[in-house]
Design a protein around this nucleic acid. Structure first.
Length: 478
RNA sequence: GGCGCGGUAGCCAAGUGGUAAGGCCGAGGACUGCAAAUCCUUUAUCGUCGGUUCGAUUCCGACCCGCGCCUCCA
Protein backbone atom coordinates (compact mmCIF):
# COMPACT_ATOMS: atom_id res chain seq x y z
CA UNK A 1 0.00 0.00 0.00
CA UNK A 2 1.45 3.31 -1.06
CA UNK A 3 1.77 6.06 1.48
CA UNK A 4 -1.10 8.51 1.14
CA UNK A 5 -1.19 12.02 2.51
CA UNK A 6 -3.62 14.90 2.55
CA UNK A 7 -2.53 17.71 0.27
CA UNK A 8 -3.46 21.22 1.37
CA UNK A 9 -3.44 22.49 -2.21
CA UNK A 10 -5.73 19.90 -3.78
CA UNK A 11 -7.58 19.24 -0.54
CA UNK A 12 -7.56 15.53 -1.12
CA UNK A 13 -5.55 12.56 0.07
CA UNK A 14 -2.95 11.75 -2.57
CA UNK A 15 -0.32 9.04 -2.97
CA UNK A 16 3.12 10.23 -2.02
CA UNK A 17 5.80 9.12 -4.39
CA UNK A 18 8.87 10.63 -5.96
CA UNK A 19 9.65 10.58 -9.66
CA UNK A 20 11.06 7.19 -10.70
CA UNK A 21 14.70 6.95 -9.76
CA UNK A 22 14.64 10.23 -7.87
CA UNK A 23 14.63 10.77 -4.13
CA UNK A 24 11.53 12.23 -2.55
CA UNK A 25 12.42 15.86 -1.94
CA UNK A 26 10.91 16.92 1.35
CA UNK A 27 11.35 20.50 2.49
CA UNK A 28 10.30 21.67 5.94
CA UNK A 29 10.28 25.21 7.25
CA UNK A 30 12.49 24.93 10.27
CA UNK A 31 12.78 26.82 13.52
CA UNK A 32 13.72 30.41 14.10
CA UNK A 33 16.64 30.03 16.46
CA UNK A 34 16.18 32.86 18.92
CA UNK A 35 15.40 30.77 22.00
CA UNK A 36 14.48 27.23 22.95
CA UNK A 37 11.87 25.60 20.74
CA UNK A 38 8.58 24.88 22.48
CA UNK A 39 6.40 21.80 22.28
CA UNK A 40 4.22 23.42 19.65
CA UNK A 41 7.21 23.68 17.36
CA UNK A 42 8.09 20.11 18.15
CA UNK A 43 4.67 18.80 17.33
CA UNK A 44 5.18 19.94 13.75
CA UNK A 45 8.75 18.70 13.53
CA UNK A 46 7.87 15.38 15.12
CA UNK A 47 5.02 14.82 12.68
CA UNK A 48 7.38 15.55 9.83
CA UNK A 49 9.99 13.22 11.26
CA UNK A 50 7.39 10.51 11.63
CA UNK A 51 6.23 10.89 8.05
CA UNK A 52 9.82 10.74 6.86
CA UNK A 53 10.31 7.51 8.83
CA UNK A 54 7.14 6.02 7.39
CA UNK A 55 8.39 6.79 3.89
CA UNK A 56 11.67 5.11 4.72
CA UNK A 57 9.94 2.00 5.99
CA UNK A 58 7.93 2.13 2.77
CA UNK A 59 11.25 1.82 0.97
CA UNK A 60 11.51 5.34 -0.36
CA UNK A 61 14.63 7.47 -0.33
CA UNK A 62 13.85 10.76 1.31
CA UNK A 63 15.93 13.86 0.95
CA UNK A 64 14.80 15.73 3.99
CA UNK A 65 15.75 19.39 4.14
CA UNK A 66 14.82 21.49 7.13
CA UNK A 67 16.21 24.99 7.26
CA UNK A 68 17.40 27.02 10.19
CA UNK A 69 16.02 30.54 10.22
CA UNK A 70 18.88 32.46 11.71
CA UNK A 71 18.23 35.82 10.12
CA UNK A 72 15.07 37.74 10.86
CA UNK A 73 13.73 40.42 13.18
CA UNK A 74 13.62 38.13 16.18
CA UNK A 75 17.11 36.69 15.94
CA UNK A 76 18.57 40.12 15.36
CA UNK A 77 16.65 41.75 18.18
CA UNK A 78 17.37 39.01 20.69
CA UNK A 79 21.06 38.70 19.85
CA UNK A 80 21.43 42.41 20.43
CA UNK A 81 19.54 42.21 23.70
CA UNK A 82 22.07 39.62 24.83
CA UNK A 83 24.98 41.56 23.41
CA UNK A 84 26.11 38.69 21.22
CA UNK A 85 27.07 38.68 17.56
CA UNK A 86 24.22 37.19 15.54
CA UNK A 87 26.25 34.17 14.43
CA UNK A 88 27.30 33.28 17.95
CA UNK A 89 23.78 33.77 19.25
CA UNK A 90 22.09 31.64 16.60
CA UNK A 91 24.77 28.95 16.83
CA UNK A 92 23.92 28.54 20.50
CA UNK A 93 20.22 28.07 19.86
CA UNK A 94 20.78 25.93 16.80
CA UNK A 95 22.79 23.54 18.93
CA UNK A 96 20.09 23.51 21.57
CA UNK A 97 17.48 22.77 18.95
CA UNK A 98 19.50 19.92 17.52
CA UNK A 99 20.08 18.46 20.96
CA UNK A 100 16.34 18.59 21.70
CA UNK A 101 15.61 16.92 18.38
CA UNK A 102 18.06 14.16 19.19
CA UNK A 103 16.48 13.69 22.61
CA UNK A 104 13.11 13.33 20.90
CA UNK A 105 14.61 10.67 18.66
CA UNK A 106 14.22 12.70 15.51
CA UNK A 107 16.29 11.67 12.53
CA UNK A 108 18.67 14.44 11.53
CA UNK A 109 17.56 15.98 8.24
CA UNK A 110 19.70 15.26 5.20
CA UNK A 111 20.51 18.93 5.13
CA UNK A 112 19.90 21.86 7.46
CA UNK A 113 20.67 24.99 5.46
CA UNK A 114 20.99 28.31 7.19
CA UNK A 115 19.64 31.57 5.84
CA UNK A 116 22.80 33.52 6.58
CA UNK A 117 24.77 31.03 4.54
CA UNK A 118 22.54 31.63 1.52
CA UNK A 119 22.65 35.38 1.04
CA UNK A 120 24.06 35.21 -2.52
CA UNK A 121 21.37 32.76 -3.60
CA UNK A 122 18.73 35.02 -2.16
CA UNK A 123 20.09 38.08 -3.90
CA UNK A 124 20.15 36.16 -7.16
CA UNK A 125 16.54 35.18 -6.69
CA UNK A 126 15.51 38.76 -6.03
CA UNK A 127 17.40 39.84 -9.12
CA UNK A 128 15.44 37.40 -11.26
CA UNK A 129 12.20 38.71 -9.88
CA UNK A 130 13.24 42.32 -10.47
CA UNK A 131 14.31 41.47 -14.01
CA UNK A 132 10.94 39.90 -14.72
CA UNK A 133 9.16 42.84 -13.13
CA UNK A 134 7.58 40.71 -10.45
CA UNK A 135 9.41 42.87 -7.98
CA UNK A 136 10.17 46.55 -7.64
CA UNK A 137 12.66 48.63 -5.74
CA UNK A 138 11.42 51.25 -3.36
CA UNK A 139 12.98 54.59 -2.63
CA UNK A 140 14.95 53.33 0.35
CA UNK A 141 16.36 50.42 -1.62
CA UNK A 142 14.04 47.74 -0.30
CA UNK A 143 12.61 45.34 -2.83
CA UNK A 144 9.00 44.18 -2.77
CA UNK A 145 7.19 41.41 -4.53
CA UNK A 146 4.33 42.68 -6.67
CA UNK A 147 1.53 40.34 -5.66
CA UNK A 148 -0.68 41.63 -8.49
CA UNK A 149 1.80 40.20 -10.96
CA UNK A 150 1.11 36.62 -9.91
CA UNK A 151 -2.30 35.48 -10.92
CA UNK A 152 -2.33 32.36 -8.81
CA UNK A 153 -1.55 34.17 -5.61
CA UNK A 154 -3.73 32.79 -2.83
CA UNK A 155 -4.39 29.42 -4.42
CA UNK A 156 -2.92 27.43 -1.53
CA UNK A 157 -4.85 29.17 1.23
CA UNK A 158 -7.84 29.77 -1.08
CA UNK A 159 -7.76 33.45 -0.37
CA UNK A 160 -9.06 35.47 -3.26
CA UNK A 161 -6.93 38.36 -4.35
CA UNK A 162 -9.79 40.76 -3.96
CA UNK A 163 -10.19 39.64 -0.34
CA UNK A 164 -6.56 40.35 0.25
CA UNK A 165 -6.72 43.72 -1.40
CA UNK A 166 -9.73 44.90 0.47
CA UNK A 167 -8.60 43.42 3.69
CA UNK A 168 -6.90 46.25 5.40
CA UNK A 169 -7.85 45.37 8.90
CA UNK A 170 -6.39 42.63 10.99
CA UNK A 171 -8.37 40.32 13.19
CA UNK A 172 -8.21 42.78 16.06
CA UNK A 173 -9.94 45.34 13.91
CA UNK A 174 -6.89 47.53 13.64
CA UNK A 175 -5.64 48.97 10.43
CA UNK A 176 -2.78 47.09 8.93
CA UNK A 177 -0.53 50.05 8.63
CA UNK A 178 2.66 49.10 6.99
CA UNK A 179 5.75 50.60 8.46
CA UNK A 180 6.94 51.03 4.91
CA UNK A 181 5.08 53.64 2.93
CA UNK A 182 6.45 52.81 -0.44
CA UNK A 183 4.67 49.62 -1.29
CA UNK A 184 2.33 49.67 -4.26
CA UNK A 185 -0.15 47.49 -2.46
CA UNK A 186 -0.65 46.39 1.13
CA UNK A 187 -0.40 42.75 0.09
CA UNK A 188 3.05 43.19 -1.42
CA UNK A 189 5.76 41.74 0.76
CA UNK A 190 9.43 42.44 1.25
CA UNK A 191 12.03 40.42 -0.61
CA UNK A 192 14.90 42.60 0.47
CA UNK A 193 14.84 44.94 3.43
CA UNK A 194 17.16 47.90 3.35
CA UNK A 195 19.35 48.40 6.35
CA UNK A 196 17.89 50.07 9.38
CA UNK A 197 19.76 51.37 12.43
CA UNK A 198 18.33 48.64 14.65
CA UNK A 199 19.82 45.95 12.40
CA UNK A 200 23.27 46.75 13.79
CA UNK A 201 25.99 44.94 11.92
CA UNK A 202 23.59 42.57 10.29
CA UNK A 203 23.47 43.80 6.73
CA UNK A 204 24.86 42.70 3.41
CA UNK A 205 25.57 44.53 0.19
CA UNK A 206 23.18 44.05 -2.72
CA UNK A 207 22.46 45.76 -6.04
CA UNK A 208 19.64 47.70 -4.36
CA UNK A 209 20.88 48.61 -0.93
CA UNK A 210 22.75 47.35 2.05
CA UNK A 211 20.30 45.23 3.94
CA UNK A 212 19.03 41.73 4.42
CA UNK A 213 16.63 39.30 2.79
CA UNK A 214 12.99 38.97 3.78
CA UNK A 215 11.91 35.88 5.62
CA UNK A 216 9.75 34.37 2.90
CA UNK A 217 12.57 34.62 0.43
CA UNK A 218 14.92 32.58 2.58
CA UNK A 219 12.95 29.36 2.19
CA UNK A 220 12.54 29.75 -1.56
CA UNK A 221 16.26 30.25 -1.99
CA UNK A 222 17.32 27.49 0.38
CA UNK A 223 14.93 24.98 -1.15
CA UNK A 224 16.17 25.79 -4.60
CA UNK A 225 19.75 25.50 -3.49
CA UNK A 226 19.32 22.32 -1.46
CA UNK A 227 17.54 20.48 -4.23
CA UNK A 228 19.73 21.89 -6.96
CA UNK A 229 16.83 23.54 -8.69
CA UNK A 230 14.59 20.48 -8.73
CA UNK A 231 10.96 20.80 -7.82
CA UNK A 232 9.99 20.05 -4.24
CA UNK A 233 7.90 16.91 -3.89
CA UNK A 234 6.58 17.62 -0.45
CA UNK A 235 6.66 20.80 1.56
CA UNK A 236 5.76 20.82 5.23
CA UNK A 237 5.12 23.31 7.98
CA UNK A 238 2.73 24.42 10.66
CA UNK A 239 -0.73 25.40 9.47
CA UNK A 240 -0.05 29.02 10.30
CA UNK A 241 2.60 29.12 7.59
CA UNK A 242 0.07 28.34 4.91
CA UNK A 243 -0.67 32.01 4.61
CA UNK A 244 1.26 34.11 3.96
CA UNK A 245 4.58 32.32 4.16
CA UNK A 246 3.96 29.43 1.82
CA UNK A 247 1.81 31.50 -0.48
CA UNK A 248 4.74 33.89 -0.79
CA UNK A 249 7.23 31.11 -1.36
CA UNK A 250 5.10 29.86 -4.22
CA UNK A 251 4.81 33.32 -5.71
CA UNK A 252 8.55 34.00 -5.53
CA UNK A 253 9.70 30.68 -6.84
CA UNK A 254 7.14 30.23 -9.57
CA UNK A 255 7.58 33.74 -10.87
CA UNK A 256 11.34 33.40 -10.86
CA UNK A 257 11.46 29.99 -12.49
CA UNK A 258 8.27 29.83 -14.48
CA UNK A 259 7.34 26.39 -13.24
CA UNK A 260 5.61 24.71 -10.33
CA UNK A 261 7.37 25.11 -7.00
CA UNK A 262 6.05 22.12 -5.11
CA UNK A 263 3.80 19.15 -5.72
CA UNK A 264 2.31 18.40 -2.37
CA UNK A 265 1.68 20.53 0.71
CA UNK A 266 1.70 19.09 4.19
CA UNK A 267 0.45 21.22 7.07
CA UNK A 268 0.08 20.19 10.67
CA UNK A 269 -2.33 21.72 13.14
CA UNK A 270 -1.28 23.68 16.18
CA UNK A 271 -1.57 22.64 19.75
CA UNK A 272 -3.30 24.11 22.75
CA UNK A 273 -2.09 23.64 26.29
CA UNK A 274 -4.57 22.63 28.96
CA UNK A 275 -7.37 23.97 26.80
CA UNK A 276 -5.85 27.39 26.24
CA UNK A 277 -3.76 28.90 23.54
CA UNK A 278 -0.13 28.44 24.36
CA UNK A 279 1.52 31.67 25.32
CA UNK A 280 4.26 32.94 27.51
CA UNK A 281 1.93 35.20 29.46
CA UNK A 282 -0.27 32.27 30.46
CA UNK A 283 2.82 30.41 31.61
CA UNK A 284 1.86 27.37 29.61
CA UNK A 285 4.57 27.53 27.03
CA UNK A 286 6.57 24.39 27.63
CA UNK A 287 9.96 23.50 26.30
CA UNK A 288 11.39 20.01 26.29
CA UNK A 289 13.59 20.99 29.19
CA UNK A 290 10.61 22.18 31.24
CA UNK A 291 9.01 18.78 30.91
CA UNK A 292 12.20 16.89 31.61
CA UNK A 293 12.58 18.93 34.76
CA UNK A 294 9.11 17.76 35.74
CA UNK A 295 10.36 14.22 35.32
CA UNK A 296 8.86 13.35 31.96
CA UNK A 297 11.09 11.47 29.55
CA UNK A 298 11.34 12.80 25.97
CA UNK A 299 9.82 9.57 24.67
CA UNK A 300 6.59 10.35 26.53
CA UNK A 301 6.49 13.78 24.96
CA UNK A 302 7.06 12.30 21.54
CA UNK A 303 4.28 9.80 22.09
CA UNK A 304 1.96 12.48 23.34
CA UNK A 305 2.61 14.80 20.40
CA UNK A 306 2.25 12.22 17.65
CA UNK A 307 -0.55 10.12 19.11
CA UNK A 308 -3.41 12.05 17.55
CA UNK A 309 -4.29 13.26 14.07
CA UNK A 310 -1.81 15.73 12.73
CA UNK A 311 -4.55 17.71 11.03
CA UNK A 312 -6.43 18.24 14.24
CA UNK A 313 -5.62 20.64 16.97
CA UNK A 314 -4.06 18.84 19.88
CA UNK A 315 -4.83 19.81 23.43
CA UNK A 316 -1.62 19.10 25.26
CA UNK A 317 -2.00 18.29 28.94
CA UNK A 318 0.15 16.95 31.74
CA UNK A 319 -2.47 14.23 32.17
CA UNK A 320 -1.91 13.29 28.58
CA UNK A 321 1.78 13.05 29.24
CA UNK A 322 1.13 10.65 32.10
CA UNK A 323 -1.09 8.59 29.83
CA UNK A 324 1.62 8.52 27.18
CA UNK A 325 4.14 7.32 29.70
CA UNK A 326 1.87 4.54 30.90
CA UNK A 327 1.15 3.47 27.35
CA UNK A 328 4.87 3.24 26.61
CA UNK A 329 5.39 1.12 29.69
CA UNK A 330 2.70 -1.20 28.39
CA UNK A 331 4.59 -1.53 25.12
CA UNK A 332 7.72 -2.30 27.08
CA UNK A 333 6.05 -5.18 28.87
CA UNK A 334 4.95 -6.54 25.52
CA UNK A 335 8.51 -6.33 24.20
CA UNK A 336 9.72 -8.01 27.39
CA UNK A 337 7.39 -10.92 26.83
CA UNK A 338 8.65 -11.46 23.29
CA UNK A 339 12.29 -11.13 24.29
CA UNK A 340 11.65 -13.72 26.98
CA UNK A 341 10.64 -16.14 24.23
CA UNK A 342 13.68 -15.42 22.06
CA UNK A 343 15.90 -15.60 25.08
CA UNK A 344 17.31 -12.14 24.53
CA UNK A 345 17.73 -9.24 26.90
CA UNK A 346 16.39 -5.72 26.53
CA UNK A 347 19.48 -4.54 24.69
CA UNK A 348 18.53 -6.83 21.84
CA UNK A 349 15.39 -4.85 21.07
CA UNK A 350 17.49 -2.22 19.33
CA UNK A 351 18.49 -4.75 16.68
CA UNK A 352 14.86 -5.10 15.68
CA UNK A 353 14.16 -1.37 15.43
CA UNK A 354 14.91 -0.34 11.86
CA UNK A 355 13.24 0.51 8.59
CA UNK A 356 13.39 -3.04 7.26
CA UNK A 357 10.92 -5.82 7.74
CA UNK A 358 12.30 -9.16 6.74
CA UNK A 359 9.04 -11.01 7.07
CA UNK A 360 6.35 -8.41 6.56
CA UNK A 361 4.14 -6.84 9.16
CA UNK A 362 2.15 -9.93 10.10
CA UNK A 363 0.00 -9.12 13.09
CA UNK A 364 1.03 -5.49 12.75
CA UNK A 365 -0.29 -5.14 9.19
CA UNK A 366 -3.18 -3.02 10.36
CA UNK A 367 -0.87 -0.75 12.33
CA UNK A 368 1.31 -0.24 9.27
CA UNK A 369 -1.62 0.40 6.95
CA UNK A 370 -2.88 3.04 9.33
CA UNK A 371 0.38 4.90 9.01
CA UNK A 372 0.23 4.68 5.24
CA UNK A 373 -3.28 6.04 5.32
CA UNK A 374 -2.66 9.75 5.79
CA UNK A 375 -0.33 9.17 8.73
CA UNK A 376 -3.09 7.92 10.99
CA UNK A 377 -0.94 7.54 14.07
CA UNK A 378 -3.91 7.23 16.40
CA UNK A 379 -5.31 4.25 14.51
CA UNK A 380 -1.80 2.80 14.33
CA UNK A 381 -1.41 2.94 18.09
CA UNK A 382 -4.86 1.45 18.50
CA UNK A 383 -3.87 -1.44 16.24
CA UNK A 384 -0.63 -1.93 18.15
CA UNK A 385 -2.48 -2.21 21.42
CA UNK A 386 -4.89 -4.55 19.75
CA UNK A 387 -1.97 -6.92 19.21
CA UNK A 388 -0.64 -6.30 22.68
CA UNK A 389 -4.05 -6.94 24.20
CA UNK A 390 -4.09 -10.45 22.82
CA UNK A 391 -0.42 -11.00 23.44
CA UNK A 392 0.53 -14.14 21.54
CA UNK A 393 3.98 -14.39 23.12
CA UNK A 394 3.27 -17.32 25.45
CA UNK A 395 2.37 -19.61 22.57
CA UNK A 396 5.09 -18.53 20.14
CA UNK A 397 8.18 -20.37 19.06
CA UNK A 398 11.39 -18.39 19.19
CA UNK A 399 11.49 -17.82 15.45
CA UNK A 400 7.90 -16.56 15.41
CA UNK A 401 8.68 -14.25 18.28
CA UNK A 402 11.64 -12.94 16.33
CA UNK A 403 9.41 -12.27 13.30
CA UNK A 404 6.94 -10.46 15.49
CA UNK A 405 9.72 -8.41 17.06
CA UNK A 406 10.94 -7.59 13.57
CA UNK A 407 7.52 -6.23 12.59
CA UNK A 408 7.03 -4.47 15.91
CA UNK A 409 10.50 -2.95 15.56
CA UNK A 410 9.66 -1.48 12.18
CA UNK A 411 6.48 0.07 13.49
CA UNK A 412 8.41 1.49 16.42
CA UNK A 413 10.99 2.81 14.00
CA UNK A 414 8.30 4.50 11.93
CA UNK A 415 6.79 6.12 15.00
CA UNK A 416 10.21 6.91 16.40
CA UNK A 417 9.23 5.52 19.76
CA UNK A 418 12.04 4.44 22.03
CA UNK A 419 11.19 1.82 24.59
CA UNK A 420 13.05 1.26 27.83
CA UNK A 421 13.61 4.98 28.17
CA UNK A 422 10.68 5.94 30.32
CA UNK A 423 11.51 4.27 33.63
CA UNK A 424 11.67 6.66 36.51
CA UNK A 425 15.35 6.83 37.34
CA UNK A 426 16.18 4.68 40.32
CA UNK A 427 16.58 6.87 43.32
CA UNK A 428 18.70 5.49 46.10
CA UNK A 429 16.95 5.79 49.44
CA UNK A 430 18.86 7.34 52.33
CA UNK A 431 20.26 5.01 54.98
CA UNK A 432 17.63 5.70 57.63
CA UNK A 433 14.91 4.79 55.14
CA UNK A 434 16.74 1.65 54.13
CA UNK A 435 17.18 0.74 57.80
CA UNK A 436 13.49 1.12 58.43
CA UNK A 437 12.67 -0.93 55.39
CA UNK A 438 15.07 -3.62 56.57
CA UNK A 439 13.39 -3.69 59.99
CA UNK A 440 10.05 -4.05 58.28
CA UNK A 441 11.35 -6.91 56.20
CA UNK A 442 12.55 -8.66 59.32
CA UNK A 443 9.23 -8.10 61.05
CA UNK A 444 7.55 -9.50 58.00
CA UNK A 445 9.77 -12.56 58.02
CA UNK A 446 8.80 -13.02 61.65
CA UNK A 447 5.16 -12.74 60.53
CA UNK A 448 4.70 -9.71 62.76
CA UNK A 449 2.24 -8.09 60.35
CA UNK A 450 1.22 -5.34 62.74
CA UNK A 451 4.74 -4.11 63.13
CA UNK A 452 5.49 -4.48 59.43
CA UNK A 453 2.46 -2.42 58.51
CA UNK A 454 3.30 0.17 61.08
CA UNK A 455 6.75 0.65 59.60
CA UNK A 456 5.32 0.75 56.11
CA UNK A 457 3.02 3.60 57.13
CA UNK A 458 5.98 5.34 58.65
CA UNK A 459 7.92 5.00 55.43
CA UNK A 460 4.95 6.19 53.44
CA UNK A 461 4.66 9.35 55.47
CA UNK A 462 8.35 9.89 54.84
CA UNK A 463 7.61 9.68 51.13
CA UNK A 464 8.70 6.13 50.31
CA UNK A 465 6.76 3.13 49.09
CA UNK A 466 7.87 -0.41 49.83
CA UNK A 467 7.53 -3.00 47.12
CA UNK A 468 7.94 -6.61 48.16
CA UNK A 469 8.88 -9.51 46.02
CA UNK A 470 9.74 -13.11 46.85
CA UNK A 471 13.41 -12.34 47.15
CA UNK A 472 13.20 -9.12 49.11
CA UNK A 473 12.06 -5.56 48.94
CA UNK A 474 12.82 -2.21 47.40
CA UNK A 475 11.82 1.29 48.34
CA UNK A 476 10.87 3.86 45.77
CA UNK A 477 9.74 7.45 46.11
CA UNK A 478 5.98 7.69 46.42
C1' G B 1 -16.84 38.72 6.77
C1' G B 2 -13.27 34.97 4.09
C1' C B 3 -10.66 30.25 4.59
C1' G B 4 -9.95 25.95 7.67
C1' C B 5 -10.48 22.26 11.87
C1' G B 6 -13.55 20.09 15.42
C1' G B 7 -18.00 18.59 18.81
C1' U B 8 -17.77 10.17 19.96
C1' A B 9 -17.55 7.13 27.34
C1' G B 10 -14.54 10.86 33.56
C1' C B 11 -10.10 12.46 30.25
C1' C B 12 -7.57 11.64 25.39
C1' A B 13 -8.94 9.53 20.76
C1' A B 14 -9.88 6.12 15.96
C1' G B 15 -13.67 4.67 12.79
C1' U B 16 -17.61 2.69 9.48
C1' G B 17 -24.30 2.98 5.70
C1' G B 18 -25.86 -2.30 9.26
C1' U B 19 -26.31 -1.45 16.09
C1' A B 20 -19.01 2.07 18.12
C1' A B 21 -10.68 0.55 17.86
C1' G B 22 -7.35 1.88 21.39
C1' G B 23 -4.75 4.57 25.52
C1' C B 24 -5.22 6.86 30.51
C1' C B 25 -8.05 7.09 34.95
C1' G B 26 -11.89 4.60 37.93
C1' A B 27 -14.44 0.09 39.57
C1' G B 28 -14.71 -5.34 40.39
C1' G B 29 -11.90 -9.93 40.48
C1' A B 30 -7.21 -13.02 40.67
C1' C B 31 -2.52 -12.82 43.15
C1' U B 32 -0.65 -11.00 48.15
C1' G B 33 -0.55 -11.87 55.52
C1' C B 34 -2.29 -6.82 53.86
C1' A B 35 -0.34 -3.85 50.04
C1' A B 36 2.51 -2.43 45.59
C1' A B 37 3.44 -4.36 40.74
C1' U B 38 1.16 -7.59 37.25
C1' C B 39 -2.94 -10.20 34.94
C1' C B 40 -8.40 -10.66 33.90
C1' U B 41 -13.18 -8.26 33.56
C1' U B 42 -15.86 -3.77 33.15
C1' U B 43 -17.78 1.75 31.70
C1' A B 44 -20.80 5.35 25.29
C1' U B 45 -25.51 4.85 20.94
C1' C B 46 -21.49 9.16 18.59
C1' G B 47 -23.69 18.36 19.57
C1' U B 48 -29.25 19.65 18.15
C1' C B 49 -33.28 19.31 14.67
C1' G B 50 -34.97 17.63 10.09
C1' G B 51 -34.26 14.66 5.38
C1' U B 52 -32.58 10.35 2.28
C1' U B 53 -32.49 4.96 3.39
C1' C B 54 -34.99 -1.40 5.05
C1' G B 55 -31.28 0.77 8.33
C1' A B 56 -27.05 6.70 9.83
C1' U B 57 -22.71 8.11 14.53
C1' U B 58 -21.22 7.53 9.40
C1' C B 59 -24.77 10.76 3.39
C1' C B 60 -27.67 15.64 2.66
C1' G B 61 -29.72 20.29 4.83
C1' A B 62 -30.34 23.72 8.76
C1' C B 63 -28.91 25.19 13.44
C1' C B 64 -25.99 25.51 18.13
C1' C B 65 -21.13 25.40 20.40
C1' G B 66 -15.54 25.37 20.63
C1' C B 67 -10.96 26.56 18.14
C1' G B 68 -7.26 28.28 14.38
C1' C B 69 -5.47 31.56 10.35
C1' C B 70 -6.51 36.23 7.71
C1' U B 71 1.10 39.85 6.37
C1' C B 72 6.43 37.86 8.72
C1' C B 73 3.69 32.71 14.85
C1' A B 74 5.47 25.39 13.96
Amino acid sequence: MAVQLYDTLRRTVEPLQSEPGEPLRFYCCGPTVYGPAHIGNFRTFLIQDTLRRVLEVDGQTVEHVRNITDLDDKTIRQSQAEGLPLAEFTAKWTQKFQADCAALNMRPPSNEPSAVAHIPQQIALVQQLVDKEHAYVSEDGSVYFRVDSFENYGSLSKLKQRDLKTQQQNSAGERNDADEYDRESVSDFALWKSRKPEDGDNYWPSPWSEGRPGWHLECSAMAESAFDGAMIDLHGGGIDLCFPHHENEIAQSECAHGRAFCRHWFHSAHLMVEGAKMSKSLGNLYTLEDLQTKGFPPAALRYSLIASSYRQQLNFTIDGLHAARSALLKMERFADSLLAVTGEDRNALATYINAETASGFGRFAKAWESLCNNLNTAACLGAIFGVIGSNPAPSLKAEDARALLDAFGSILYALGLQLYSVETPKQEAPDDILNLAQQRWEAKQARDWAKADEIRDELLSAGWVVKDSKEGFEVVPS
